[in-house]
């Protein structure tokens, strides 16, 4: 009877059905239109291309599950990429050390968000909007807007450009391991359950003895670390680090998450859905390219897909809310 009830039961499987359908449709169409689309090599190429957005999106899922959002990941990716270049080239650190420092930097960036959100109780949208500007600005300041780091050692570049046995791209294991880790964390651990509780009702979670601030802080720190990791994967793949690296990636990551059926209001959603979201976006982009269609079409269709998925979800929720309202009355009318 009140608004709270209209918030849905976990309906992620619906979104996933929708996405599987979209994915199959894409594959069916592009297999006909695209040259060399339906090949194992291309499938692996899609995995390679989706790694950075995928890493960001997969970690964005727990953030959105808590009812938050992290707009700063794309900028943080840029900042981490630039810092990595700076540490390796100008500070002369060996690349593995610089890489480790980059991950720490990502964690610190996430930590800044976490601190402002949990300590000062500021809305994540505003905090990460501010840190989006801040991180990108720092990246520009460090490079004075022009510096471009190139010429990384091949030992490092192999991680982004090389292949393992069977033509598997070198970044695939990292990407899959992280995705698997997040799936386990979100779906099979107590931490994941706590995140959902927080997303549905932060106050309710606090009253149930969940350390809300600590959980939320971790989520943003991990999201920042993921941005650091994505920065490394990105630099290794493209072979250069500029201040504008990862511009707009935050929006792609959020698109994948929302497309995957995670409610932007928190509480419900799944990492599997996000993976499907990432996959359908990557396949779309790749398939259009191989079909000689303009790349812009991918962007347009992404927007359309996003609106379609959302409308479908809202429609389904309205339907099930109506059904549930009647169930509510039935159960409360029956003698107990």
């Amino acid at each position: 009877m009140s608004t709270a009830i209209s918030v849905g039961k976990p309906s992620w499987w619906r979104s996933e059905f929708f996405l599987v359908g979209v994915l199959l449709l894409e594959i069916a169409i592009f297999s006909r239109t695209g040259s060399n689309f339906a090949t194992a090599i291309n499938a692996l190429e899609i995995v390679r291309l989706s790694a950075e957005i995928g890493l960001l999106a997969v970690w964005m899922t727990p953030v959105v599950l808590t009812g938050g959002i992290d707009l700063s990941v794309g900028s943080l990716l840029g900042l981490c990429a630039v810092c990595f270049g700076k540490l390796w080239r100008d500070a002369g650190l060996p690349w593995p050390v610089a890489a480790a420092a980059t991950l720490v930097l990502g964690a610190l960036g996430g930590g800044l968000n976490a601190m402002l959100i949990t300590r000062l109780r500021l809305p994540p949208l505003i905090v990460t909007l501010g840190s989006l500007s801040l991180f990108r600005g720092l990246a520009e300041a460090i490079t004075r807007g022009v510096d471009n780091f190139t010429g990384f050692p091949s030992g490092f570049l192999d991680w982004g450009q090389g292949y393992l046995v069977g033509g598997i791209p070198a970044q695939a294991p990292v990407w899959i391991a992280v995705a698997a880790g997040v799936i386990v964390l979100v779906h099979y651990t107590v931490f994941g359950r706590a995140l959902r509780a927080i997303g549905h009702s932060p106050e309710g979670a606090r009253y149930a003895g969940i350390a809300v601030n600590r959980c939320v802080a971790w989520v943003y720190v991990l999201s920042g670390t993921a941005a650091g990791l994505a920065a490394l994967v990105y630099v290794a793949r493209v072979g250069q680090a500029k201040a504008d690296a990862g511009t707009g990636y935050e929006l792609l990551a959020i698109t994948a998450v929302v497309l995957g059926g995670t409610s932007i209001f928190g509480g419900t959603g799944s990492v599997w859905g996000t993976l499907l979201g990432v996959a359908s976006l990557a396949v779309l982009r790749n398939g259009l390219q191989l079909s000689d269609q303009p790349g812009e079409l991918a962007g347009i269709l992404t927007g359309v897909l996003l609106l379609g998925a959302l409308s479908a979800e809202v429609g389904f929720k309205k339907f099930s809310a109506r059904r549930r309202a009647s169930v509510t009355l039935a159960s409360s009318n029956s003698p107990s």
Partner: peptide, 26 residues
């Protein structure tokens, strides 16, 4: 989309943000 369909504005405008910009580029 926001008022009649009840979709969250941040996501709706994210979608139109991408769509308009890419349409223009196209």
């Amino acid at each position: 989309l926001v008022a009649a369909l009840g979709l969250p504005s941040i996501v709706v405008t994210l979608a139109t943000f991408v769509s308009w910009r890419e349409t223009l580029r196209w």
